[in-house]
Design a protein around this nucleic acid. Structure first.
Length: 804
DNA sequence: AAAAAAT
């Protein structure tokens, strides 16, 4: 296998960048087509960069650096941003002139000149950080407003400039500051607002006082400055702040639970304590430890004054005498096999009734108890007949029972809870005698579906909304990152099912714009994740706002004992369902681990992603997701990013670009790990290995959905092999580790895997035809090459059979 | 570390 296939010098191989193959002038790609105005402007609605002109050729890394650019583009949000940038290049010569001495350059900036006139403070500015300096200076000016308004006039042109490419350089400069900024993360929010759109800025304007307050924070940054005295005063504020932090503890005091938290989080520093926490943490060692946690639970629930009474009054299943609920969640030792008619499966101490996949055969949605309208809506969605998990849970949900549902990724959980939720709402409505009425203004929601990410909430709504609509119910999405006006408006008009993320929902509850008191069905998708640190408490608070005694449905592919905190407080005698035989051996996903040198990681990701099908790349941090995206683009691979540093419209757009096929590569943080469904992702690359086996399963689950095949490649450094083995062990996945380095044949390695899959499939088919091979026996023991050989042999035999 | 509300 040839090493060092790649040419030296950081320049991509020709076959890596199709645009180079087409020629183009030396010294950078041609700037052809830059004369077209209007439609090329990113600010315009119908802006479509590649619609009219052939794709622009890219600058290599060296070219970028040589012209004063960062090695990677600073904006990675998609093509739309890119074209504008190339416009900048026309200005380049001028700029590079300026480059020789920096001071003139800054003067050259259109913005700077006017400003400097307004202010006497110039030098100070230039001393400080590029952007930041402007701000302090400005706030100095605050004393006299007139100049400011003058400044404002300057702004207008600026925003015009925005459409114009000239503004871009400024932005990219900001970007370069990122690392520094990330330290200042507390200030992020305001900044992001600035970035989102200029109007936001003008808002800031009105808030000037606020800004000046911010300034007090700035001095901290300006630490570098010589003026220590004033700052140190400011610094005194800092301690104050941190004292505020300490107030949090008291705050949490209000919460009986909270008291546990601080303790825990302190423990956190100590790895050894993890096992104790254990709920979700998936260190191997945790699992046994968890059972030890158990004794704590009763204590906790005693802490809650609310809990006991609630259950007493509202919960039919509550047994006062025993003081314990009647629940199948914890296996009762003396109870024997309670679910005799089906198989018992105990996983993570969570006992589930397992439905056999074959039990769903021949069953229709109508058989499960869904009404005609809902069935028709499901058919419209492409769901003709129920998947196993749906067959298992729909009847139970319709009974009104609490349900814990576990079905592997891509097995149809959304419909499993969505359809019966709608149906049951209708039934309850009919029972209350209100059915058939018109939509009442301002009626309160009666069902709530919670999801961990905005994208997932949106996606759930896309499934549930048509089902609800088919029976005249309304849904609305309540999630952050977008103006709340529309959401509030929808609530005021009257909504039956609210689908959203915890933050905004709690926000609207506090604003009294969302009233959950009539919510009788609450669904938690990715329920185990919703019980993770940071999610659990908001979720608990939200559920406490729902009607007492309401039905609760918890779903996840990795549902485990981690949800005990919620089960204990909110569920009564939940039915636990999963699909039998859904182990990884039955999966359609092929897994492999490449052991690599970390320094080659980005290039290897590029090699792997340089292919036809849709590829999803996972990174641990937002910054690396950005970095990777840029790197891929430098290779000529179209890629967009998805992570929490992007504003919501970009997040939505970038995900949509993958869905629509406008790009083939999405680089995401774990925001995309769970639940997100994109058709035909056939390769998942884990550029950073996950820490949790559950994360591994969910990330992998973005491919191989609904029975399709997919591949997962995880890149790890050598020193991570043992951890990875343990993680995979935990996930019950068998994987070969392969040492790979940059010159190796990555595409071939992937194909090799595919060949094995194809071979096994063919073998299966051939075995059916010939009826001589016990497939399971064979597959267990053979290597890929042997498989192929056997397939050939069997195929020949099959041919002969057919011939004869 | 990321996600989830703004400010």
């Amino acid at each position: 296998m040839p090493k060092n296939k790649k040419p030296q010098g950081g320049r991509p191989a020709k076959n890596f960048d199709p645009s180079y193959a087409k020629g183009g002038s030396k010294g950078g790609p041609a700037r052809a087509g830059s004369s077209k105005p209007g439609s090329r402007s990113e600010g315009h609605r119908g802006y479509r960069p590649e619609a009219d002109a052939p794709r622009k050729e890219r600058w290599s890394r060296d070219e970028r650096v040589s012209t004063g650019r960062a090695p990677h583009r600073s904006e990675r949000d998609g093509r739309d941003e890119r074209a504008p940038r190339s416009f900048d290049r026309n200005d380049r010569p001028a700029r590079s002139y300026d480059r020789d001495d920096r001071a003139p350059r800054t003067n050259d900036r259109n913005d700077r000149a006017p400003r400097s006139f307004d202010r006497n403070d110039r030098p100070a500015r230039s001393f400080d950080r590029n952007d930041r300096n402007d701000r302090p200076a400005r706030s100095y000016d605050r004393d006299d407003r007139a100049p400011r308004t003058n400044d404002r006039n300057d702004r207008a042109p600026r925003s015009f400039d925005r459409n114009d490419r000239n503004d871009r350089p400024a932005r990219s400069f900001d970007r370069n500051d990122r690392p520094a900024r990330s330290y200042d993360r507390d200030d992020r929010a305001p900044r992001t607002n600035d970035r989102n759109d200029r109007p936001a800025r003008s808002f800031d304007r009105n808030d000037r006082p606020a800004r000046s307050f911010d300034r007090n924070d700035r001095p901290a940054r300006s630490f570098d400055r010589d003026d220590r005295a004033p700052r140190s005063n400011d610094r005194n504020d800092r301690p104050a702040r941190s004292f505020d932090r300490d107030d949090r503890a008291p705050r949490s005091f209000d919460r009986n639970d909270r008291n546990d938290r601080p303790t825990r989080s302190y423990d956190r520093n100590d790895r050894n304590d993890r096992p104790a926490r254990s709920f979700d943490r998936n260190d191997r060692n945790d699992r046994p430890a968890r059972s030890f946690d158990r004794p704590d639970r009763p204590t906790r629930s005693y802490d809650r004054d609310d809990r006991a009474p609630r259950r007493d009054f509202d919960r039919p299943g509550f047994k006062e005498s025993s003081g314990r609920r009647d629940s199948s969640f914890y296996p009762a030792k003396d109870q024997g096999n309670r679910h005799a008619k089906t198989d018992d499966v105990v996983l993570e101490r969570l006992e589930a009734q397992a439905i056999q996949a074959t039990d769903a055969d021949g069953v229709s949605f109508a058989d499960l108890g869904l009404g005609g309208n809902v069935v028709a809506a499901l058919r419209q969605l492409g769901a003709e007949s129920p998947f196993p998990i749906q067959a298992a849970t729909i009847p139970v949900v319709l009974e009104g029972r609490d349900v814990l549902g576990r079905g592997k990724t891509g097995s149809g959980k959304t419909i499993a809870f969505g359809a019966p939720t709608v149906e049951r709402l209708m039934k309850l409505w009919a029972e209350s005698g209100k059915a058939g009425g018109k939509r009442q203004m301002g009626r309160k929601p009666r069902a709530l579906i919670l999801a961990p990410t905005r994208e997932l909430a949106l996606q759930i709504d896309r499934t549930v909304q048509p089902i609800a609509q088919s029976v005249g119910l309304f849904t609305t999405q309540i999630y952050g990152g977008v103006p709340q006006q529309r959401q509030v408006g929808a609530l005021q008009r009257g909504v039956d099912i609210v689908i959203g993320t915890p933050g905004r929902i709690e926000d609207l509850i506090e604003q009294r714009r969302l009233d959950l008191s009539e919510v009788v069905i609450t669904v938690l998708d990715e329920a185990d994740h919703m019980c993770d640190l940071g999610f659990l408490e908001p979720v608990q608070r939200i559920i406490r706002h729902t009607a007492n005694g309401g039905q609760k449905l918890l779903f996840s592919a990795t549902l485990d004992k981690g949800v005990a905190a919620l089960v204990d407080e909110f569920l009564v005698d939940p039915a636990v369902h999963e699909v039998a035989g859904e182990d990884q051996a039955s999966s359609t996903i092929e897994h492999r681990v490449f052991v690599i040198g970390n320094h080659e990681k980005r290039d290897i990701v590029a090699e792997l992603a340089n292919r036809e099908g849709k590829t999803l790349v996972f990174s641990r941090t937002r910054a690396f997701a950005e970095d990777l995206t840029g790197h891929l683009e430098d290779y000529g691979i179209r890629a967009v990013a998805l992570h929490g540093d992007l504003n919501q419209s970009r997040r939505t757009r970038n995900l949509q670009q993958l869905t629509s096929g406008r790009v083939n590569v999405l680089v995401a943080t774990d925001v995309a790990a769970r639940g997100i469904h994109v058709d035909d992702i056939d390769l998942v690359i884990q550029a950073d290995a996950p820490d949790e086996y559950k994360t591994y399963l969910h990330r992998s689950g973005r491919t191989g959905r609904a029975g399709k095949t997919g591949q997962v490649v995880t890149l790890i450094p050598r020193n991570r092999q043992r951890r990875m083995v343990e993680l995979l062990d935990r996930a019950e996945i068998d994987v070969d580790f392969v040492d790979m380095r940059l010159g190796d044949d990555f595409a071939g390695e992937l194909e090799r895997g595919t060949a094995a899959a194809v071979a096994i499939e063919s073998l299966d088919a051939a075995a059916d035809a010939v009826d001589v091979v016990e497939l399971d026996d064979v597959v267990e023991i053979i290597e890929v090459e042997e498989t192929i050989e056997i397939v050939e042999t069997v195929s020949v035999a099959a041919d002969e059979e057919f011939a004869g």
